[in-house]
Amino acid sequence: MISSHLTLKQLEALVCVVDMGSFRKAAAVLGTTQPNISNRITKLETDLSIVLMHRDAGSVRLTARGEKLVSAARQVLRSAEVFWEAAARQDLIVDRLRLGVTELIACTWLHPFLRRFRAAYPSVSVELEVGLSAEISKKFSAGDIDLALQPEPFPSKGGGSLALGVYDYIWVASPDHLDEIGVPGDLDDILRSPVLTHGKHTLASGGLLKQAERRNLPVNQIVYSNSLASCVPMAVDGMGTALLPRALVKEQLNSAALVLIKCDWHPEPLRFFARFHKDRAARFVEVAASFAAEEAEKHE
């Protein structure tokens, strides 16, 4: 018979301290106090009669036995999730999903994804961060994000990932704006009037600047924005020609509020992935990644 001394909360505390690197951060993630986390691990060490980790000035170092037992603890926790799923009681999985997404996902299929995840895991709260891909990559690498929905490139391709599709860029403008400037024939024509696009630090804008430099074209009419979504109403209002992902303006194209413009240059398309830490992610994180892949496919 399995000893009743061992609890899932003890294993959860052990794994979380290792993943977060400190008792304080683990307590914040698990929604409890640092002394509580310390007590759980101390009790586990006492029951096992071994030392799992060394505490050094706020950081932790696993012992050799601790390394082996952390791996085993992850398997137990994942098996517990499988057990709840088999019982159709995912509502008993109480946790949180730290989700990082870029603006394009937030403006397209994020809401149906969140509704689906909420229906599957009603007791798992979602902490959402919408930001630039570079910022999401940093937090993902630091372990502050469990699931990142973002485009390439990212610093490391390690861990788990699922493809979310390819999003191409297009040139669009309002009918009123085209009446004013005429229909552009190529990039040279487009850059003679205001152009609305993402910030300078993005791949698309960087590619546009390089292409303009290569052709010796003016760039003083390019209007950069840290928000892709804000470019859409500006384009509809006739404030300029916009370089945007097609998925972001699908509704405006269908309603003819914006018109597709042919051009002899486009940025490289965005290739999106759902990224998670495969070696340590809870099972519900992997399930969330699969939900994201399915919702992305529906949106294509």
Rank of each mutant, 00 (worst) to 15 (best):
A87W: 10
A87S: 11
D91T: 03
D91P: 07
D91C: 12
I93C: 10
R96L: 05
L97M: 09
L97G: 05
R98N: 02
R98P: 00
L99T: 09
G100I: 09
V101D: 02
V101A: 03
T102G: 05
T102K: 05
E103V: 07
A106C: 08
C107R: 10
T108M: 03
F113D: 03
L114V: 15
F117R: 04
A120P: 04
P122T: 11
P122V: 07
S123Q: 06
V124M: 13
V126G: 09
V126C: 09
E129T: 02
L132C: 06
L132T: 04
L132G: 11
S133G: 13
A134Y: 05
K138Q: 12
K139A: 02
F140M: 09
F140D: 01
D144Q: 01
I145S: 01
L147A: 01
L147T: 03
A148P: 09
Q150L: 12
Q150W: 13
P151K: 14
F154E: 12
K157R: 10
G158W: 08
G159I: 11
G159C: 08
G159H: 06
L162R: 12
L162G: 05
A163V: 07
V166I: 14
V166C: 07
Y167Q: 07
Y167T: 08
W171K: 15
V172M: 07
V172Y: 00
A173C: 15
S174R: 09
P175K: 08
D176V: 13
D176W: 02
L178M: 13
E180Y: 01
D186A: 15
D186S: 14
D189I: 15
D189V: 15
I190H: 01
L191M: 08
P194Q: 04
H198R: 10
K200N: 05
H201S: 12
L203F: 08
S205M: 14
S205R: 14
G206V: 05
L208V: 14
